Measured scan of single mutants.
Amino acid sequence: DLSALRVEEVQNVINAMQKILECPICLELIKEPVSTKCDHIFCKFCMLKLLNQKKGPSQCPLCKNDITKRSLQESTRFSQLVEELLKIICAFQLDTGLEYANSYNFAKKENNSPEHLKDEVSIIQSMGYRNRAKRLLQSEPENPSLQETSLSVQLSNLGTVRTLRTKQRIQPQRTSVYIELGSDSSEDTVNKATYCSVGDQELLQITPQGTRDEISLDSAKKAACEFSETDVTNTEHHQPSNNDLNTTEKRAAERHPEKYQGSSVSNLHVEPCGTNTHASSLQHENSSLLLTKDRMNVEKAEF
């Protein structure tokens, strides 16, 4: 173990290094160091905050020279020094078990990766560091076993998940096959086929009936047209017969005018059967003409 005197000496050296690497504005270890034209180094955030307070150039807090945003430059070497100082402080805390008085939040800088452990060898070769390295080497064999167990647990979990997924996939297939086998029997399929065939026959029977009705309507229309044509021909046949009657009536009127007047009046009210309204109107006109002729003949006879 380190003596108290040596611990104090190391602590004083760390404090001196820390004062050199402090920012003059925030009085902390410089984060993202930036250098000016006057070779003074500050935190990048502190300098941008200072420049944004005034429009135009501002003055350096140490030498009062003008500073602009374009004049600022990043210093990589200074950032490396800060990183190495942080590593020294971490090693000091691990070796002594004491917390550094002016320690900052170094938890963000710590890294437990194997590459980081290899890099620590180049920091300080001390008894405390050696003991700590031995402890780490002793704890390393235990870690692979834990990793193997965790991997086995994960693989077993994956296997159970896969088996569950396969079961879920197989179950719908089985149910679907069961439904297909038990849903419709052979008799049901035959009945469905016969039902479809009967429906098709009914459709075939319905369509000819409609065509037959249309044919019957067409035949009825044709018969009505033929009947009207026969009526017209009958009226045409009746007209010459009426003319013959008129000639006979004229002759009778010349011989017996008194008797014919009474008979002509009675004939006005008689309509021949089986004739249309057109034929009756023609008869009325003929009878009126005959009456006028008879009157003329009677007057001539009187004179």
Rank of each mutant, 00 (worst) to 15 (best):
D188H: 01
F78K: 14
I215S: 13
R70T: 08
K54V: 13
P141Q: 07
E28H: 11
E32N: 09
D119L: 09
A253T: 06
C60V: 15
H256Y: 12
A16C: 04
R251Q: 02
L94P: 15
P257L: 08
R130M: 13
P33Q: 13
T207R: 03
N276A: 15
I30T: 10
E22N: 03
E99I: 05
H256R: 06
C225T: 06
R255M: 09
N157A: 06
K293G: 08
H40C: 10
G262S: 11
E99L: 15
A91V: 13
K55E: 06
Q147G: 08
L51A: 06
N246E: 11
V232T: 06
S122D: 11
D244G: 03
A91R: 15
N131C: 10
D39T: 07
S71N: 01
K54D: 07
L151I: 10
P257T: 09
T160A: 05
S228P: 07
L86M: 08
E229S: 09
L62F: 03
D119F: 11
K134M: 05
P24I: 10
D294R: 01
C23W: 00
L94G: 09
Q53M: 06
H40P: 15
S280C: 12
C90K: 09
P257E: 06
Y260K: 15
L146Q: 11
Q93I: 07
C43E: 15
S145I: 08
V7P: 05
Q173K: 04
A224S: 00
R135P: 09
L204K: 11
L51M: 06
N52S: 07
D244Y: 00
D188W: 15
R77C: 14
S145C: 02
R130W: 00
A101L: 11
Q261P: 08
V82K: 14
K19F: 01
L155Q: 13
R212E: 14
D1Y: 05
I89V: 08
T292N: 02
L50K: 02
S71I: 13
L289C: 15
Q73K: 11
E84K: 09
C90Q: 03
G159D: 08
I89S: 08
H40F: 12
T194Y: 02
V7A: 10
G128Y: 02
K69A: 06
F78Q: 13
C43N: 15
R165K: 10
R6T: 06
C63L: 14
P240V: 14
E74K: 13
D231N: 07
T292I: 02
I67Y: 08
L282S: 11
N246T: 04
K250V: 13
D244N: 03
L85I: 10
T248V: 02
R77K: 13
M127F: 00
L50Q: 05
C90F: 07
E271P: 14
G97S: 12
T68Q: 04
A193I: 00
R162M: 08
H269L: 02
K19E: 10
Q18C: 15
P257F: 00
V190S: 03
E115G: 03
N267H: 14
T207F: 13
R70M: 11
C43P: 15
R165Y: 10
D188C: 07
S156V: 01
H40I: 09
D200W: 00
L48A: 08
Q138N: 09
E110D: 12
L5D: 09
E28Q: 09
Q93M: 10
I30G: 08
S281Q: 10
S58Y: 11
S280K: 06
Q80V: 06
E84C: 10
L289H: 13
T160H: 08
M47Y: 11
M296L: 13
Y129V: 10
R165S: 12
E22T: 01
Q80F: 06
D188Q: 07
T248H: 03
Y104F: 10
E140K: 11
K109H: 00
I41M: 15
F42N: 14
P33E: 12
D231Y: 00
L72Y: 13
R135H: 07
L2K: 09
G262L: 03
Q138H: 06
N246S: 10
C46I: 15
K87A: 13
S79P: 12
K31M: 14
V190N: 03
S3I: 02
V10T: 12
L27T: 09
Q80K: 08
C23Y: 15
M296D: 09
K134N: 07
S113F: 07
E32L: 09
P208G: 03
E84T: 12
G199P: 15
P57I: 08
T247P: 07
F106E: 10
R212P: 01
K192S: 01
T166I: 07
Y104H: 08
K64G: 06
H237P: 04
Y129P: 14
P272Q: 03
N267S: 01
I25G: 04
T149A: 09
E120I: 05
E254H: 05
K44I: 05
M17T: 12
Q201L: 09
T160C: 12
A133S: 05
T68D: 06
S58M: 02
E254A: 01
T166E: 09
N12T: 06
D200T: 11
K109N: 06
S103I: 07
R169L: 07
L117P: 04
P208I: 00
A4L: 11
R6P: 06
Q283H: 12
H278M: 04
S126P: 09
S197R: 04
C225G: 11
R295T: 02
Y104L: 05
R77T: 15
Q205K: 03
A252V: 06
I41V: 09
I14T: 13
P33C: 09
S216L: 03
V270G: 09
H256D: 03
L136F: 04
V7D: 07
P57E: 05
S216A: 12
S216W: 00
N246K: 13
I123L: 10
I25W: 01
P57M: 05
N52T: 08
K49I: 00
R212D: 12
K221S: 02
K134R: 13
Q125N: 06
R70S: 12
S216R: 03
L27A: 06
L21I: 06
T166K: 14
K192A: 11
Q138L: 05
E254L: 04
P272F: 00
K192P: 08
A279S: 12
I30N: 09
N15C: 09
L29N: 02
E8G: 08
N246G: 13
P141C: 12
C46R: 15
C63S: 13
A223L: 04
S264T: 02
D66T: 11
K37L: 02
M47K: 10
A279D: 15
V270N: 01
L48K: 11
D294N: 05
V82R: 09
C46E: 12
R162E: 04
I20H: 07
Q59Y: 04
D1G: 02
R135A: 02
N267L: 01
A133C: 02
T233F: 00
S156L: 08
L85H: 05
Q283L: 14
K19W: 09
E142M: 03
S186T: 06
R174V: 09
R132V: 15
Q93T: 01
T207Y: 00
D218E: 11
T292A: 04
E254G: 06
S186Q: 07
L268I: 01
E202Y: 00
T149I: 00
P57K: 02
L72P: 10
P61K: 04
L217M: 13
T275S: 04
T235Y: 14
K87R: 09
I14C: 13
I170Y: 00
H278V: 14
F106C: 07
V82D: 01
V161L: 09
I67K: 11
A101P: 02
E28W: 11
L136D: 02
R165I: 00
Q138G: 07
R130L: 08
K134F: 01
C60A: 14
I41F: 04
E214L: 13
K44M: 01
L21C: 04
A220D: 03
S228W: 00
T160V: 11
S216Y: 00
F78V: 05
L94H: 15
S156N: 05
G274V: 15
R130K: 04
V265N: 09
K87S: 05
L21H: 09
I25F: 04
K37T: 08
N131Y: 11
L155C: 08
F45L: 06
K87N: 04
S71P: 00
L2F: 09
V121C: 05
F106W: 12
C26G: 15
K134I: 02
T149L: 00
F42I: 08
Q93Y: 13
E236S: 01
K64V: 03
N267A: 04
C38V: 15
F303Y: 08
S3D: 03
P24A: 02
L94T: 11
E28P: 14
L151M: 12
